[in-house]
Simulated assay, not measured.
Amino acid sequence: MSIRHGLLALLERGPRYGSQLRSEFESRTGSTWPLNVGQVYTTLNRLERDGMVAQGGEDEAGHTLYAITDNGRAELRTWFEKPVDRTSPARDELAIKLAMAVGAPGVDIRDVIQSQRRHTVKAMQDYTRLKAQALLAVEGGGARERDDVAWLLVLEQLIFQTEAEARWLDHCESRLIRLSAPAPAGAPAPAPTAPATPQPDPKAAAPGVAAS
C-alpha cells in the first residue's frame, strides 16, 4: 500500500494538515487500511525531505498545513501512469501457510483449508453487504459522492479477491485429494519402454554397394 502516493493525491486537492489527511484517506478507502497520525506525519516528513511537499503556514486552529510541490505533482503523475508491478508480488500469508502445512507433522492441511474457506466466505458476504450500502450512497449523490465511488471500487476489488481466494482453496483441496488417492487395484503396470531401434550409420556403405 502506498501511503506516500495516497497523501500526495489528497494534497493535490489543496493544503491539508496531518489528521485531516488521515481522515480523508480512511474515508476514501472505507478504513480498509487504517492509518494512525504518526504514520501520516512520518510520511509527510519524508515527502518534505524529498522535496515533494512543503509546509504552507497554519490554518485558523493552528494546524500546520502541507502543500504539494511541483516535484510532488510529477511523482504523482508517474504513479498514476505506471502499472503496479506484479513481477515481485507481496508475500501472501495464506499461500505461505498452506505451503508450510504440506507434510507438517500433526497438521491436516484440509482442515486448514476448510477453516480458511469459512472465513473467506464470511468476509465475502460482509463485503457484499457493504457494497449494497455504498451503491445506495452513490445513487443518492451528495457532497461525499466522490468518496463513496472510491469506497465502492475498493469494496469490489475486495469482493473479487475473496471470490478468487475461495476458488483457489477449492482447487487446493481437489488437488490434494487427487494426489493422495491410491492407484486403482489391479491397474496394469506401465509397459516397459521398448529399446530404441538402432539407426543406420549414414557413413556405412549400403548393401551391395562397394565403399569408395
Rank of each mutant, 00 (worst) to 15 (best):
A194R: 10
E156A: 08
T162C: 14
A101E: 00
R73A: 08
H63E: 15
A95M: 00
S174T: 09
T42V: 03
E156P: 02
P105L: 10
A61G: 13
S212E: 13
D70Q: 13
G6P: 08
P34V: 04
W79Q: 11
D50Y: 15
P105I: 08
A185G: 10
A196Y: 01
I96P: 00
G18R: 04
T193G: 07
S174E: 13
R4M: 02
E75D: 09
T42F: 03
H119R: 10
Q55R: 15
R49I: 07
Q20V: 04
E12Y: 09
P202S: 10
A74L: 13
A67D: 12
Y17H: 15
K97E: 11
K97V: 07
E58R: 15
E26P: 04
R91K: 06
M1Q: 11
D50P: 06
V37L: 10
A90H: 07
W151D: 06
E12L: 14
M1G: 12
R146N: 12
S31K: 15
T193V: 15
S27A: 15
L44M: 08
H5A: 08
A95Y: 00
P207I: 02
L152E: 03
R4T: 07
A191Q: 03
I68S: 02
T69L: 03
L98K: 01
V37W: 02
G106K: 03
E173R: 14
A101K: 07
F25N: 07
L7E: 05
S31W: 14
A194I: 04
W168Y: 05
L47Y: 02
L44K: 00
R167W: 00
T193R: 13
Q157H: 12
L47F: 05
A54I: 10
A95Q: 00
K131D: 01
A143Q: 03
N45Q: 06
L94Q: 14
A191R: 02
D85S: 10
L155R: 03
V102H: 11
P207V: 09
D70K: 05
T69R: 01
L7S: 09
A134R: 01
L35T: 02
G30K: 01
L153D: 14
